[in-house]
Design a protein around this nucleic acid. Structure first.
Length: 471
DNA sequence: TGAAATGTTGGGGCG
DNA sequence: ACGCCCCAACATTTC
């Protein structure tokens, strides 16, 4: 056996290619790969229900790729790592860095404790193109606007690290008394997920397949096509990226090898938005719950449980909103354009606090990511960095007409509206009663009446904004 | 990665 | 041929 034994603690880097920590451990000793389900430190940021499902299958896939040597535990990582070090006389631990504030605190603390026991800790960056602290303005403050962040910050900084290959040879150490993935009980009791999982191939190989599918079939039309929820022009890589089944570096260098053109630039800048989210949460550890623009603390959010529930269940009476919310509920995913529409609707038409939206997304999305979720909700609410101004209110009817022109997406998720002519499908209350009858629709019975008047609620939002900013 | 209100322009109908 | 009105179509402003 190659010595020494090195613990490689996995977290959101569930892959073996382009994996800095694994690479280091494999080159310098025998690898003891460890995954720890940690609810002790995550508290209210414990994975949501959908993410847990993804994690379950991702861990299974990872374990296979690690020759079934993954040691699985549950509890406080500090205790578990210390115990392993003592039991097997291990003096070296490596990991790839995580960037959520609670993770940073936890890892700092663990590193400190391990080092006082003379255990060497080495960490790497395997999930961001640029370290958050590397992208700062000349005066040392962090960027608050995306375009300069990306253009002057990221693109002027050192090029992202080139991806690493899978280590040629890995010698593993098999620990005793480890749990199986099933023992973590990540799957819910009610099986809502197995039907939708056929659309995804969870794990590293699936992530690579998705990347190549995207490059071959969708990237050429990304810039325009990514706005059409009925079509497949987005990469669908988000959940794979979140769990580190693929690294942004692997994606970056695959697309950057292609002849330069605007679709590629547009796609790369979306990876830039991901970096921007991580920058925001790195420099504002309270991003998940605190308005970045503190004046929004005074905003008179409405607390309406019924409307919130109608939104969550896709029963608002606004078809594009309901289609999106039902896609989310049924599939653990929602098209990005529609995420913006439903977000705008919750915050600006229902006047409900963005944190409720963020919480729901957190629980329902396979790709729920604390940095992206928090930053994006703050963006749509208007209280974030480089945010949409509050008065920029989406009209969900117009948005439907623009981006789902044939009503294909709406019909897919709202079967009760399928027979309605496209002309009326974006706003059924406009349809003459004969048309409704012909389509077998009784508004208020087979499909809800709108829970708000779009025009009125827009005006209400503008008034509320005006009033609170005047104070 | 808005939408609505308001302003401007220019072609065509018509007396 | 001219002035007047109407109204798309587009541009600008405002929220």
């Amino acid at each position: 056996m190659k010595t020494p034994i090195i613990i490689y603690w996995l977290r959101q880097d569930l892959r073996i290619a382009d994996n800095q920590a694994l690479h280091y451990a494999a080159n310098n000793g025998t690898v003891l790969p460890v995954y720890i389900w940690d609810e002790v430190n995550s508290q209210e940021f414990t994975l949501g229900a959908a993410s847990k499902v993804w994690l379950h299958y991702s861990l299974q896939n990872l374990n296979q790729n690690l020759e079934n040597k993954l040691a699985i535990y549950t509890g406080n990582p500090l205790d578990i790592l210390l115990e392993l070090c003592t039991r097997y006389k291990i003096t070296q631990v490596v990991w790839n860095r995580c960037y959520e504030p609670w993770q940073i605190n936890r890892d700092k603390n663990i590193k400190h404790h391990l080092m006082t026991k003379n255990i060497q800790v080495t960490s790497f960056n395997a999930s961001l193109l640029w370290e958050p602290w590397e992208i700062q303005k000349k005066d040392g403050s962090y960027y608050k606007v995306f375009t300069p962040f990306y253009r002057n910050g990221c693109l002027q900084a050192t090029q992202p690290r080139q991806p690493l290959a899978v280590p040629r040879e890995i010698s593993y150490f098999q620990a005793e008394n480890t749990l199986a993935v099933e023992d973590l009980s990540l799957l819910p009791t009610i099986d809502w997920y197995s039907k939708t999982l056929t659309d995804w191939q969870i794990g590293e190989q699936g992530a690579q397949q998705k990347l190549w599918w995207f490059v071959e079939k969708a990237l050429y039309n990304y810039k325009e096509g990514r706005n059409l929820p009925a079509k497949r022009y987005t990469s669908l890589l988000a959940p794979h990226l979140h769990f580190g089944e693929i690294s942004p570096n692997q994606i970056w260098y695959v697309v950057k090898q292609l002849p330069e053109e605007q679709n590629i630039d547009c796609f790369c800048s979306e990876l830039g938005w991901r970096e921007f989210s991580y920058s925001q949460i790195y420099f504002n550890s309270d991003l998940p719950w605190q308005n970045l623009q503190r004046k929004f603390d005074k905003f008179p959010w409405q607390h309406n449980q019924d409307k919130l529930r109608a939104w969550q269940r896709g029963m608002t009476g606004i078809p594009i909103v309901d289609a999106g919310m039902r896609e989310l509920w049924q599939t653990g995913y929602m098209h990005n354009r529609v995420r913006m529409i439903v977000g705008s609707f919750l915050v600006k038409n229902l006047l409900i606090d963005w944190r409720y939206g963020a919480k729901w997304f957190w629980d329902c999305l396979f790709d729920a990511d604390l940095a992206n979720n928090s930053a994006s909700w703050q963006w749509i609410a208007g209280c974030g960095a480089d945010a949409a101004p509050y008065f920029r209110i989406f009209n969900p009817i117009t948005q439907g007409e623009k981006f789902d022109p044939d009503g294909e997406y709406i019909r897919k998720y709202i079967p009760e509206l399928r027979q309605l002519p496209t002309k009326y499908i974006f706003n059924p209350i406009d349809a003459p009663s004969a048309v409704l009858k012909n389509a077998n629709i009784i508004l208020g019975e087979t499909y809800p009446m709108p829970i708000v008047d779009i025009k009125e609620s827009r005006q209400q939002a503008l008034d509320a904004f005006k009033a609170f900013s005047a104070e």
